[in-house]
């Protein structure tokens, strides 16, 4: 397996100078590389310009139905990219370590913690955040149910709760109050809206709404 042909994942790497740089890498089968030299240069502050170019990598993904093309550092998490680069601040940072669920988003339809997800690994994925759940002005049934049953107080964990609640039903884990509680336990709510959240999910589930 020695080939410098880019695998499909490299097709977004268009910068030819970057390609040349890659050729010097011994890692010919690997793609999407941040060169060590650039990192060293950056760390040593030797060439800020070089560092600025090579510290970053192209990232193309779909967020709430729109394709976004970004240039990101490999260390940037999906959460920080959403909040700081795309101004999608509905996805919240509550712990930054996968311990609270406030950052829950859907990746290809499945709920995950965006704080432990490196953005660069989302290449080609479809991301849905709370901002992408409603259809225009028409709220998603889960959003309506959260309002109706007061599934929140301060509202900070709410986007994560709602994204998780939608998954909870989709996954088939909303069969009983007990099951909902277990499968919603990855989302911490410090205001203590849990019973209301359960009621909201039951309403959507029992109402037979499409989620």
């Amino acid at each position: 397996m020695k080939s410098d042909k880019p695998t499909p994942e490299t097709t977004d790497v268009k910068d030819s100078s970057r390609r040349d740089f890659l050729k010097q890498s011994t890692l010919l089968t690997a793609v999407a590389v941040t060169p060590v030299v650039a990192i060293k240069a950056a760390n040593d502050h030797m060439d800020e310009h070089l560092a600025a170019v090579f510290e970053k990598m192209p990232l193309k993904m779909e967020v709430n139905g729109k394709t976004v093309n970004l240039s990101v550092e490999p260390r940037s998490t999906l959460l920080d990219i959403l909040r700081e680069q795309l101004d999608l601040t509905g996805t919240k940072k509550g712990c930054d370590h996968g311990q609270c669920g406030a950052c829950t988003v859907h990746v290809d339809g499945h709920r995950i913690n965006s704080c432990l997800t490196l953005g660069i690994m989302m290449s080609g994925k479809k991301i849905t955040t709370i901002e992408g759940l409603a259809k225009g002005d028409q709220l998603h049934p889960m959003q309506e149910a959260f309002i109706k049953h007061d599934g929140f107080q301060c509202g900070y964990c709410t986007p994560g709760q709602i994204m998780s609640a939608v998954s909870c039903i989709r996954e088939g884990h909303a069969g009983s109050e007990h099951e909902i509680r277990e499968y919603m336990s990855g989302n911490v709510c410090r205001c203590g809206a849990y019973p209301n959240i359960v009621n909201a999910i039951l309403e959507v589930k029992d109402g037979g709404f499409a989620v």
Binding site: T89, I130, E131, L133, Q143, I147, D150, F152, T158, P159
Partner: peptide, 9 residues
């Protein structure tokens, strides 16, 4: 403010 909170706005 429910709508703002459930939409992430």
């Amino acid at each position: 403010d429910g709508r703002l909170k459930v939409t992430g706005a």
